[in-house]
Design a binder for these strands. Structure first.
Lengths: 140, 140
DNA sequence: TCCCTAGTTGCAAATCATTCTCATGTGCAT
DNA sequence: ATGCACATGAGAATGATTTGCAACTAGGGA
């Protein structure tokens, strides 16, 4: 018989394995994060987490997001002029198109660009720790 | 005899031509901006502008930067976790390497990446309004 | 299962960058 | 030189995020 492990449960295990305590509020936030298919910000995550556990405070949402980011479980995206948005780090690396009219975020991936970046940094004597490629766009 | 037009004087003319008033404080900020070879933030620009004209307030620095940005005379860069930085828009378009250890900003340019971005956006039915490519790096 | 304690939390106050309000001042077309 | 639409300084307001602190609790060990 297969073990039905929900995505947030396996994230909880991953956290415990790293010595991070899985509290009631962290579990709620994890569940929300792994169920999200968009790129919510802290306030929105707070709103959603409260549905699961009304006691979760906004401060804890922020604290938890930092913890999860450091654990490599979520990625933070800072788009121009808006609060940070978050997504689980399970998907392979990708960059973003931000629809300026709707705020929608479309993910894309380009191995070619990635390689060019690598080459550029190397030429200048640097190694890339992280990078950000955002296309602020409008429908044609 | 050649007319010695300082970089900030020609910026002043460009502004007046666009119907933007060149006030004492705007002139000071323009002089600082055109003399800067780094990427200062508003507070740093305020510090420098006060040397020229002690009356310049931080609020006016912010207001002026917005005006200059809209006039296309300066570019604003929002790097992760730090206040916005500014530079005059005279140099051709370029992207940035941010040295994570020193905060230094190195400019670079890649026509190939630019074209790839263009293609990616187009494929998704978008046209690029602006884009951001930042490489957060460490010396190798 | 119960305990203990280092790690967590909620709340509110604090920070930080940036914007806004408003009364006063001034660039510049006429 | 003059007027007035636009600018400015000072400080309060805003919005996102962080922090101080006293009360709580996860989860390893007895």
């Amino acid at each position: 018989m297969a073990i039905a492990t929900s995505p947030s449960k396996s994230l909880e295990d991953a956290l415990r394995k790293r010595g991070v305590r899985v509290t009631r509020q962290r579990a709620a936030i994890l569940k929300v994060l792994s169920g999200a298919d968009d790129h919510p910000d802290a306030t929105e995550l707070h709103r959603r987490a409260k549905v699961i556990d009304d006691s979760v405070s906004l401060a804890t949402v922020y604290r938890t997001l930092s913890v999860l980011e450091e654990a490599g479980i979520v990625h933070r995206h800072v788009f121009d002029g808006e609060p940070s948005r978050f997504e689980t780090a399970d998907a392979p690396h990708h960059d973003h198109i931000i629809d300026l009219d709707t705020g929608d975020v479309i993910e894309f991936r380009s191995r070619e660009i990635e390689e060019l970046q690598e080459r550029i940094a190397r030429q200048r004597g640097y190694e890339i720790v992280s990078h950000k490629l955002e296309l602020y766009c409008r429908k044609r």
